[in-house]
Design a protein around this nucleic acid. Sequence first.
DNA 1: CGACATGTTGAAGGGGATCAATGGTGGTGG
DNA 2: CCACCACCATTGATCCCCTTCAACATGTCG
Lengths: 252, 252
Amino acid sequence: MEHGADNLQGFLDRLTDRSVLHDNEKAAILDLPTRVAQVEIHRDFVSLGETTDHVCLVVDGIVGRFGQNATGGRQITALHIAGDMADLHSVVQPRAGSALQALTPTTLLRVPHAALREVAARYPAVAEALWRDCAVDAAILAQWVTNVGRRSARTRLAHLLCEIATRYRAEGQREASSFAFAATQSQLADATGMTTVHVNRTLKSLQGIASLSNRTIDIQDWDALSDIGEFDAGYLQVDIKPADRIRIAAPA
Amino acid sequence: MEHGADNLQGFLDRLTDRSVLHDNEKAAILDLPTRVAQVEIHRDFVSLGETTDHVCLVVDGIVGRFGQNATGGRQITALHIAGDMADLHSVVQPRAGSALQALTPTTLLRVPHAALREVAARYPAVAEALWRDCAVDAAILAQWVTNVGRRSARTRLAHLLCEIATRYRAEGQREASSFAFAATQSQLADATGMTTVHVNRTLKSLQGIASLSNRTIDIQDWDALSDIGEFDAGYLQVDIKPADRIRIAAPA
DNA sequence: CGACATGTTGAAGGGGATCAATGGTGGTGG
DNA sequence: CCACCACCATTGATCCCCTTCAACATGTCG
């Protein structure tokens, strides 16, 4: 067990984008004990029903949270990228309600529940920040329900691409962009409740607006894409001005 | 502003079904200031984007959390019944990511954020219990994504009925039952991403297994219904044995 | 009793699934 | 360095679940 301050920094950044933490609280987070783990592609590193004693921070790669139906059809219910705590909820609810799988070769940082709980207990503001991140997670899930339930395939896919792009560059972005994203069409299908075939065709229909190739997402026309995707970044709680960040806990 | 201990009891029960709270912590919750509100049917009492300063506890009736697409199609992303805090997440994230609407005439208890935050700050175990409830909420949302994304209409509807039944009687139930649930077919449609027409036909296909009429859900054959719905109640975190409830916070 | 919401039924059309095959492409080992 | 293989992308043809549109029935509440 080592200290993974370098990698924890990404997680801390995520937290402080939305929450107010003081220096001692930040230090406590960077001081968390960690263990690095490499996960090969397509491997479940948390299984359904398993009780875990640590959380998994994504350092590199993409992680999917999976649900499945009786016939084996898999549905991705959440995507997690570098800086995300993929199962933060497990701190208060250690029995996994869904499996976690590496969608690409992935590097994780495992942080023991015990250590995180200790920090959360000592610093209420940290507990609050973690809770807040879970709330954002839930807001994203609610968006996905709407996405899958009430939008056409084209809109669905566009919305997902917008969400991913926005989360990658945690700044408001209203422009074209291009970034590494090594998911396959079949994984996009699992995330949008479509079939691979239809993802392929829908992606084609977005030519000139956005594309996925060479493990890279290219967004050529952000306005058009966010329009098609009916996308409004508000729910991602990105770009919260420092003055608007809330802190319930007293100064430590 | 009065004390609504009677009605807060339902909320406290919900919390203590999953979390361990000591007597002083329970007392602090029952002591929260509240304001009763009657909400007429079909009225939004929280709008999208609004910043609230209180949470809404459902005392009686049914509340839906709504998302919507560009053409006005509405999707219910969560259902809340008596005892549920419909927007608990607003404690840490006061800007509403979705609207809340009364699906039936509803009685609410409004609890000021300030008061709840004060209790949460003084009693870390309370903050933990609230956080845990948000985590359960998120687990339900993940199920809904799977439900809407990868299940047939029949399965979807059966799954929803199973979830509602299980949440109403927060005990493991493997049997027929009948309970008041005044939602319309059109609301079930919004919750499952179907059309009213198809809900009507699908409901008919469940004749003898389950039915919705006279504002009442009747489940005649639980085994068949949970089978069709591919339902496993685990994610609802109902029926957690006292010994299995987790408490991070130290004894107060 | 009248009005409006909710439930019911029929007919027709389409969006996306399904099935099936072929074409790329990167990775691996001989 | 090439041959092979596994995985991924692409395309066509067909089917069907569910939507859409439209009408009518039923219920409920003032």
